[in-house]
Structures are given as C-alpha cells and as structure tokens.
Design a binder for these strands. Structure first.
Lengths: 349, 349
DNA sequence: CGTCGTATTGGAAACGTTTCCATGACCCCG
DNA sequence: CGGGGTCATGGAAACGTTTCCAATACGACG
C-alpha cells in the first residue's frame, strides 16, 4: 500500500542504503544521486515509517506528557493547566519532537508506573503535569534517569528539572501592590497544602508581609483548596473576624472570585470596602465584574521554558551511562509573574 | 539495556514465539507455560517495545489529534475546545488507544499535509479540531480513507464522520426559553460564518423564531466572530436600533458576556431591561455576575461520542480494500444541549 | 608506477516484535 | 491398534528503516 524506501531506491537506481543517506542528508552522497532520490521520493509521495525508524535508531523523536486528566478536574486549576498544555504543544512544535498524551491510568495496572509508560513508547523525554497523586511513580521515573520536566511540579534529579511560576516573586508583587495602596491588614487564602503553588504562595505571603513590615496574625491565614467554593467559605470566615482584613490575597483566581462573591454577599463593595488579588490570571479573571486584579503568568514563556529545559536535558552528553554522574539536572526555571491591575483593588476606606 | 522478549523467553525456557503468545493472551498456549512466562516477564520488568510491535502488526494502537494550536488562539472558542480535548483524552484512555497530539505546521513543509502526518505515524484514526484553515488537507485526508472524526467540524466521507453539538436543538432551547418568558423582539449575535457552529446557530435561530411565530427583522441579526469584543460591538449596534430587542441570543458565551457588558455600559440592567442567552457554557459563564444563562454542552459525552465513532469506523470491516464501498461513514453524532438558566434572563419589562 | 587516502556506493545485519508454517505429542473414536 | 484431529511449541520470515563494514573507483602524492 504505502511506498517504502526500497521502492524509492529501486526507482532511483540506487540501493536502500544510499537512498536512506540521501533522504537523511548524510554528507557522503553525490549531489546528483541525492537530487535523483529526492525527486523520486517526492514524486512517489514517500513517507518514512516512523516506527521502523524509531526501532532501528533507538530514538523516537517523541516526548510524552503524562497528565492525570481525572485529577485535573478535582484540583481547581484546570484552566491554568489547559493553557499550559497548549503552550507546551506550541513550543514543542518548533523543535521537531512529537507529543504523546498519556494518562497514569491508561496503561498501569495497579500503582501507576511511569517508567513502563516511558519505556514502552521509547519516550526521549517526559513532561509531568497534575500528577500530584502519583508521586512514587514520579520518583521512580526520575530514578530511571529518563529526562523529565515538571510543569508546576517540583521534580529534581540527575536528568530532571521543572518550570514553575516564581511564586515567591509573584506573591511579593501582589502584597507590595496592596501595601502600596495603604493596606495594612492583609489576609491570605491559601491553596492546597499538597501542591507546590499552594505552599510556595503561602510561604511567599509571609515573607513578603515581613518584608513590608506587616504582621500576619494566624487567623489571617485561611485554608483553601484552589476551588471557588473554598474561596467563598474562607472569605466568609475572614469577614466574620473581630478585626477583618481590608485586603485579601488569594493563591488562585477561582478562590479570589469566590472571595469577591462572598464579600458582595456580605453587603460589602469590592474594591471600596475590601480589596482582592488573585493569582494565575485565568480567562475568567478578565471577564468578571469588576475585573480581577491578579498576578499573571506568561503561559507561552512557560511552555517554551519547559521545552528548552527538556531538550537541554535530553541532549546533555554527560549523563548517558548508567552511572553518568550523580549531578543534579539543570536549575529549575522560575518564570516571573506580572501584576495585572484590574478592578478589585483600591486604597482602604 | 532494556530487557526484550528473547530474554524473557530464554529465562522461561521457551521460544520467543511462545513467549509472545503467552504475553498476548493467545488461546493456544499451555496454562503452565503462560504462567511461567508471565512470572518471568514481571520479574524482569519486561516492557514490550511498542515501535517493534507496531511495525510488525501494521497497527499502532494510536490515534492522532490534529489541532491547530495557532488557530485556536484566534477563533474565540479556545476554552471550549480545550475542554473538548480533555474529554477526548479521557474517553480515549478507556479504549487502549494512545493519543498523539499533532499540529498542522509541525510536519508539513508548504501546504499542510495531513495524509503524510497520519501515514508517518501509522495512525489508526485521526481526530480533527480547529483546522478550519486547512480544509484542503482535511479533504485529502478523508479521500485517503483513513478513519477520521471531526470535532465540531463537519467532515463526511466513506470512513469519516463527526460529532458536534446539536446546534439546531440547542438554539431552539434558547429561543423557546426567551419566547416562553414573553419576549417577542429577539435578536441574535452570530458567530463566524466560516465555522459550522456559527452558521448552524444562525440558521437554527431563524428556524426556531419561525416556529415560535416570531419575526426576525434583518437588523436583528448582528454579525460577530465568537470573540468578546464582537459581542460588545454587536450589542451596541442592536441597542442603538430604533426599536431595540428585549432579548438577545448570542452564538457563543464570550459574545454573550460582551453583550451583557455593552448593555450595562448603556445604562441598562440585565436581565431587567434586556435578557441575554449564550451558548457553550464555558467556565466563565458561571463566574460572571449575573451568571450567564446559556446552552450547555456535555463535553464528556461529546468526547465519548467522538471516540465511539472513531472506534466504530476503524473496526468497520466493510471498507478495508481500496475500493471498499463508496458508502458514507456512520451518521454524525449530534449531542443535545441543555438549557442552563442563570441570571441573565427574565421576562421583558 | 605503486600506494594510499577519500568519496561514493552496496550488501547485510540489526532493531524487537508478531505470525505463518511445520512439527510433534496427545487424545478420541472407530 | 490405526487414523484424524486438536493442542502446544519452535523455527524462521517479515515489518521498514538505519548503519556498519567492505568494496570499488578515482585522484594525488611520493
């Protein structure tokens, strides 16, 4: 059915070996021969079989994105991760790597086994996203020395690194913005404790507040889980305090939107009575009214950084053997956020 | 490095042929032998090489999703399609097929060539999304008789079909809702004319209005392009009419949100002075205030339907030869929408 | 003129599977 | 006890490439 390289070779009057060389731009092939083979290939519509190619070359030109689609619906940052996926795909398209989408459950019998997934498909690299529920599998993958990059997931290892928002810096941006407006009683609504963005933004908040010389009473730290409802509930608790905050930093936009809603339900006006800042700048942030002030991330840059990191790790010749140096992989890439001021922040009353 | 099937066979005291049969649940292999091979395989951590497997079996167990990530940012329905992608992935995970993400630009030199993309990766099926800019390539792909399913894209052919929202029915739902509330002057904001949802929702609107015995003056049809700004502009035009509508059906949620914003800018109150209905039920629809009344789609069901369709087409034995019947593929699956009543609709003043 | 390096090419092995075909063992039934 | 059938297994080919190695031809250099 499909035309193979032998056919091309035969019609060009050369051997398959030479045809292969001509098609793959090998140096040692006569110009005339190369031209002839190329012409024949085009004429016949020859398409190299990637499986055969991968089999013999021992490399697939493919990277995988392991991504728990089930988890994604339950962790409140779905739209953020979907945007990130698109960014990753776009960045990858320019490198010549193909992208395979894989789910933890799809192949693994009992505990998910990323090592097997990667091995089966001869993945040259793996991107990991929303797999917080499969940390042992991630560790095993790293230990197998397969190139890895975590997206918003702190994976480190000899051939592993990660990209993430600079949560410390982004949080500082938000706090400085609020402090600059004159707020002194600033509370925070945190994200899930099991996720890196959750803990880093929480710690970043304390650090930034300290840097601004502001105090954070324990009751000003309200636990959330990145979902809207948790933002609503947390804000209700904060507003019920004897001395409620005049501004709130929520670790995620969805919670921030929930906080705004809670404030309005309590009869308060945002931003007049209370200011709210979110994080991530998801699409809805610009659509709600008033528009949500938030810390935006550059998804495209993040996708690019992830791909750069992965390509760099894959290409690194220092660690090819089984004991190729116990070094850490390249340093994580922390992408700075930018403050997007919309309508939910103002000086305190 | 990796352990292959010969190793498993050797350690089990059988031939590779038998080992293969044991591992692939072939009927004719003794229970004891099978158990022995399975045990050895597990013990050795054997992982079959998918490329070799695909090469010899002439099937890859892989379907591709061709998806123009560039286009996706320019057509105003990004979040809808991203949700659909997730749904597709989830449905596919249960079938054993792997999913390869491909972009038109990634492989094609000049005009995008989906036939080549599919051939190179031995894709057993192809899902198509947001490729309105590559219709010739789509046609060529269909002509190549490779199983195809369009997502929100009307592809038909011997081995091709598509899934989509039932735009006619969904639009009727919206119009009936408005008419039921007592509205008689109902306008519409259309989507892009080049996209199926755009034209079907526009036609559906006229049909539903006629069925309700309502008139649609030409100036009540305002052109949009699915983006927020176009909804804003269209609504401004509608409100400037000598006899403005009391209700508006927008073909997409983003435009509907824009319409609400335009109404509020004009000093009107939604839904008191004017009602607005959208379509798609994207995430922001539930987050804006007032919540947008819209026609919701069941993404998960849509993803499932697409996968079912594709699997069915792939498995269809009637068309295997080059001239295997000029029949059309299975009928498209139109998924009914459901009306989600939130806060942007009310009886006319 | 002989020898050596270089450029170009072909033959054949290899990648890791699956599957076709043949072989032998075994059982059942006449 | 013989013949035909089924079952279990092994040998080897095949899938479509790339690449190692050898072979040839050619020019240059001593």
């Amino acid at each position: 059915m499909a035309v193979d390289i032998r056919e091309v070779a035969r019609r060009s009057g050369v051997s398959p070996a030479t045809a292969s060389r001509a098609l793959n731009a090998h140096p040692n092939v006569a110009d005339a021969t190369r031209a002839r083979v190329l012409a024949t290939a085009r004429e016949l519509g020859y398409q190299p079989n990637q499986q055969a190619r991968a089999l013999v070359r021992q490399r697939s030109d493919t990277v995988g994105l392991i991504w728990d689609t089930g988890y994604v619906r339950t962790h409140g940052r779905q739209s953020f991760l979907q945007d990130l996926l698109v960014a990753l795909k776009m960045a990858l398209a320019e490198t010549g790597y193909h992208l395979m989408l894989l789910s933890p459950s799809s192949t693994a019998a009992s505990p998910s086994d990323f090592v097997s997934i990667a091995a089966q498909h001869s993945l040259e690299g793996v991107a990991l996203m929303a797999v917080n529920a499969h940390l042992p599998a991630v560790d095993a993958l790293i230990a197998s020395r397969r190139p890895c990059v975590g997206l918003d997931l702190p994976v480190r290892g000899a051939r592993a690194s990660y990209v993430s928002a600079d949560n410390q810096q982004g949080t500082a941006l938000a706090v400085e913005h609020l402090a600059g407006l004159g707020h002194r009683r600033i509370a925070t609504i945190t994200g899930g404790a099991g996720m890196m963005p959750g803990v880093e933004r929480r710690e970043g908040f304390s650090a930034a507040m300290a840097a601004a010389g502001l105090d954070v009473p324990p009751e000003y730290v309200a636990e959330g889980d990145f979902f809207l409802e948790s933002g609503l509930a947390a804000m209700r608790r904060l507003l019920a305090l004897p001395s409620p905050p005049t501004a709130v930093f929520a670790a995620g936009d969805l919670m921030a939107i929930g906080a705004v809603r809670a404030a309005e339900e309590a009869g308060l006006s945002v931003p007049r009575d209370v200011s709210v800042v979110g994080f991530d700048d998801i699409e809805p942030a610009s659509l709600v009214h008033p528009g949500l002030t938030t810390v935006g991330q550059d998804y495209l840059a993040m996708g690019r950084a992830a791909v750069e990191l992965l390509v760099q790790i894959i290409a690194d010749p220092r660690v090819t053997g089984p004991r190729g140096g116990a070094r850490r992989g390249p340093a994580p890439r922390l992408l700075p956020g930018r403050l997007v001021v919309r309508g939910t922040t103002a000086p305190p009353a």
